[in-house]
Amino acid sequence: MKKYLGTKILVYILTFVFAVTLDWLIPRFMPGNPILVLVSRFSGLPESARVMYSYLTKAFGLDQPLWSQYVNFWIALFKGDLGISIYLYPRPVLEVLKMAIPYSLGLMIPSILLSWIVGNNLGAIAARRKRLDSIMLPIMYFITGAPYLWLGMLLAYFLGVVWDIFPIAGAYSFSLRPHLSWLFVGDFLKHWILPFLSLFIVQIGGWAIGMRNMVIYELENNYVRYLETLGVKRKLIRKYAFRNAILPQVTGLALQLGTVIAGQVTTEVVFSYPGIGYILTQGILNQDYFLIQGCFLFIIIGVLIANFTVDLVYMALDPRIRFSYGGEV
């Protein structure tokens, strides 16, 4: 068990270093110069603009050679300093992220977990009811093939514009400031429901199809056949089949996270929802190296933590995993 965890943690640390290096490198390959964007915002004489340009380039450390920028980046990272945003100058990146993270997590965690639970149960039910299955399967294939962004726009159009039930932009009304009151919470939920639905619905499809196939496969398995010859109740067979079928779905959960984050970005853009995805798009549009780095850093850490959790859950669920790594169960 210790060996298993040790190996896993080592792999995660290597992955982290590699991913963060890419995260640092890629924005710097983008054509264009972020400082020019910033300078152009302070309109003035060309002379003062030149002074400002050289000052800001120095201030952001962009005049140094790439390798020393890279070293400085790691040093700053360990100090918990993610730099200052160029686009939202002079606010520090960490502060910008702190504002955005709750909105992103508030969308992501409920949509991932709820769709996983609902999708798996729907799939398991469809697996043993032929008629329901033949109706549900095509619908689920359609849903899972729908892009988040397209579904988001449909939802916004019908529920937001045509029937005018839910607001279609922002995380709360412009007339409100974030604070803890029933008024604000109600308003927040009203804004939350559409982006949540567009993430939730698309994800359900994949889980339901996967679970349906897995349960059908499990129900054909020899251990189920043997249980039938022992005349046990259907309930026990279903319980065993569900539990064994869920194992690959747990792995799937870890693999899905990357895709979900991409979906999250587009959904936040569609609904102008001030989460990480929205901030990230703004950062990219404005060539804000530090903001892009910060956003990706958050995504990297999130995916790694989620994967690690899944590893732990899997170990608890399946004795065969424990066995293959430690020889102890």
Partner: peptide
């Protein structure tokens, strides 16, 4: 038939080696 299975007649199946649920003690 469930009333008879296990209590009145049982089988040692051909696939006895994977007849047990792999994830249960």
């Amino acid at each position: 038939m469930n009333d008879f299975r296990f209590s009145k007649l049982s089988i040692i199946p051909q696939y006895a080696m994977d007849a047990l649920n792999p994830t249960r003690k």
